[in-house]
Write a protein that binds this DNA or RNA. Sequence first.
DNA 1: CACATGATCGCCT
DNA 2: GGCGATCATGTGG
Length: 208
Amino acid sequence: MIAKPVPHACLRFDPKARGLREPPRSFYLRDTEVVARNLLGAWIARRWRGKWYGGRMVETEAYLGPGDAAAHSWKGRRTPRVAPMYRDGGHLYVFFVYGMHYCANVVTRPEGDAQAVLLRAAEGPDDCPERLLSGPAKLCAALGITVSDSGLDLLAAGRIRIFRGRGKRPRVGVTPRIGVDYAGEAARWPLRFFDLDSPSVSGRKSVN
DNA sequence: CACATGATCGCCT
DNA sequence: GGCGATCATGTGG
């Protein structure tokens, strides 16, 4: 088995007790960079055996669709794997990579415009290891997210949801995206966003 | 700290 | 048949 869809125990939290609420569909239909920025501070949550597990997102990347050489939907590529990217905003797109890892994206824009935001890192609730969710594959592993979750509607009251952040907005840092050096000019586009004050972001905190 | 490398396999050409 | 939206580990400075 490559990854058991079992969330890490320390990620348990209660969205209701924290007063968290879900954004409307329109939140996800906007410009992808805006969504990527606004997802910082929001909570990614997964229900397992009736309980909720999750973390506060601190790092995201925007993937801009057919014109973006780093995006799976580059040049309008449309295969069964990528199909969820073509749904309307608010769906989940999960893919399998490097033979052993999963990465999760939130689809943005209206149906047919295949853009998405990669969830790169989050902070768990109190008493979690600081870097448990620091990286797209680590985030999926710790929450137990796999390809079987790809295509889920985040607004369908299902097992994976996103809740709006509360309190002050994070200070946002911007750099090029990670791991897309093959994408030519697009590899240098400043589409990675992260919480400057979080110790849980993956990799570099500045350009270079 | 900064690289370099191996693991491992589904997907697309 | 080649390679990837990664990670952990190992080496060297």
